[in-house]
């Protein structure tokens, strides 16, 4: 069963995502999408690893070309992909320049990912409700992430919003 989760920062998305992934069976994979760039990122990675310790996740590092991590894993297992936001950022703002249409390929790849690995939980960030007028590039990134979110909301079995640690079911069920 596939589940898409979004919501604001620090509302408990990852906690629910971990519980849902763990309940879905084994082998249990954590797809780590962040590419660390500095000491702050390194510290964040260590903190996240400490938070996951004891859950039984095998970590698959994959910041780009997301389908490649399935070559290193059993697609019948349970996957937690955290986060769609970081993946898009890596693909859109790549070392060789800005890829304005990265979201189209990423949406296709993530749909394929969910088809090949049906027990996948994907986490994204709800960055669409603040009072700000953004520059064109930031606005393009928001529109691009919304495109990927909406494609995933369409193809996943469950769509959940996590608000202050509570879950709103927009589609399907809370698979716990």
């Amino acid at each position: 069963m596939s589940t898409f989760i979004s919501g604001g920062a620090k509302n408990g998305k990852s906690f629910y995502a971990q519980r849902i992934a763990k309940a879905a069976g084994t082998p249990l994979y954590y797809v780590a999408t962040m590419i660390p760039h500095d000491a702050e990122d390194d510290a964040r990675v260590l903190r996240h690893r400490a938070e996951r310790a004891g859950w039984g996740f095998e970590t698959l590092e994959c910041g780009r070309d997301i389908l490649s991590c399935l070559e290193r894993a059993d697609a019948g297992g349970s996957f937690l992909l955290d986060s769609v936001t970081a993946l898009l950022s890596n693909e859109m703002f790549a070392p060789d320049g800005i890829h304005a249409d990265a979201h189209l390929r990423l949406a296709d790849e993530l749909e394929t990912f969910v088809r090949r690995a049906p027990n996948t939980v994907l986490v994204s960030d709800f960055i669409y409700s603040d009072a700000a007028l953004y520059d064109d590039l930031t606005e393009a990134y928001r529109a691009a992430l919304a495109h990927v979110d909406r494609r995933l909301a369409r193809c996943c079995d469950n769509v959940l919003e996590v608000v202050a640690g509570r879950v709103v079911v927009h589609k399907g069920v809370l698979p716990l």
Binding site: G8, F126, Y128, S129, D130, A131, A132, L133
Partner: peptide
């Protein structure tokens, strides 16, 4: 209408007034 109510309180007074008026 787009919901613009869920971000950090904007530093800019116009954006603050806009957010509350919305």
């Amino acid at each position: 209408a787009t919901d613009i109510s869920c971000g950090v309180v904007p530093v800019d007074p116009l954006m603050r007034a806009w957010r509350e008026a919305c």
